[in-house]
Simulated scan of single mutants.
Amino acid sequence: MTTAPPTPPDTDAAAFVAALRRLKAWSGFSYRQLERRAKDAGHVLPYSTAATMLGRDRLPRQELVAAFVAACGVRADEAQAWLDARVTIACGGPVVTTRSSRKRWSWQRCRAFAGALALAGALLAAAGGPFTDDVEVDEVGVSHHLPG
């Protein structure tokens, strides 16, 4: 009988990465096998990146967590729990309610914000970097910078 994969903690980055290490041990795959399995699942996870990720206590990027848990063989619903826990840690913890303002800040809002940031980063990367490319400025003859 196989055991269930480890569950992700949502307390702090060090505990999260320790759980990722347990997940790798649970999977029984080498770093090279994880790289191949991630590629087969449509992700990019270089073996050196996976090894570096598990050797630190910093919170890994969202796409690395998604690739890693998929490569380890975690089912989609369980994989989402890993991604949710990562967002909760990145956003500073679970639900916080303030009585005075009656505003409720939840991990769902933070997750939406994190998703928007990831989308903005992807769009900037797809655009080829900074928008103030010197070649474009030279061709147009207009600078969008304020005079100093």
Rank of each mutant, 00 (worst) to 15 (best):
L45A: 04
R102K: 12
V17S: 04
A90S: 06
E139P: 00
G92W: 00
T11A: 07
A4E: 03
W26Q: 08
L146D: 13
A76H: 08
L20C: 02
W82D: 01
G121W: 01
A116T: 08
F68R: 05
G93Y: 05
R75I: 15
H144E: 13
L117T: 11
H144D: 13
A19M: 08
D133V: 07
L20N: 03
G128W: 06
V142E: 15
A38L: 10
Q62I: 07
E78Y: 13
A13Y: 09
E78A: 14
R56S: 09
P130A: 12
V87M: 13
R22W: 09
Q33C: 03
A19C: 03
R32W: 14
V44T: 15
H43C: 11
V65S: 02
A122H: 03
Q33T: 12
E63K: 00
A66P: 04
L23Y: 00
W82T: 02
R111G: 02
P60F: 10
R56F: 01
A67R: 01
S101V: 05
Q33K: 15
R75F: 12
A4T: 10
E78S: 13
D77W: 04
G92M: 01
R99L: 14
L20E: 10
W105E: 00
C110P: 01
L124Y: 07
K24Q: 11
A71Y: 02
L117E: 14
E78M: 12
A116Q: 13
E136R: 08
L146C: 05
C110E: 08
R109T: 13
L45D: 09
V69E: 02
A90M: 09
Y31G: 02
S101L: 12
E139A: 07
G93E: 07
L45V: 09
P60S: 05
Q108G: 00
D133M: 05
A76M: 06
V17G: 00
S106H: 08
M1S: 15
K103G: 03
S27I: 11
V95P: 11
L23T: 09
Q108R: 02
